[in-house]
Amino acid sequence: MTVKLLYFAWVREKTGLGEESVDLPGEVKTVADLIGWLKARGPEYEAAFEQSDVIRTALDQTHVSHDAKIAQAREIAFFPPVTGG
């Protein structure tokens, strides 16, 4: 399944990418699985997701926890805790 991944703030700076399209292998079922899979893709991903517990995720623009199932999500975003206002 092809999904669009988006990265914001320091996650974007560390991966060096704002967005990319990836084909997810079947064994990647949850957000936590995806983070584990991304970390194995290279040192920049390993650095971006090193403190994976602080990273927030949105599936199709809705906040989710790391145990959420990716299911049919088309757009998956990773970012630090938000600091607007």
Binding site: A9, W10, H63, P81, V82, T83
Partner: peptide
């Protein structure tokens, strides 16, 4: 509205100053 905006709306602040700068921590 402000309390929810602060924790839920996807905005990120990066500060700059003469001594450098960085992303603001939540």
């Amino acid at each position: 509205l402000m309390d929810y905006l602060k924790t839920d709306a996807p905005f990120w602040k990066k500060e700059e100053g003469p001594d450098g700068g960085g992303w603001v921590d939540a």
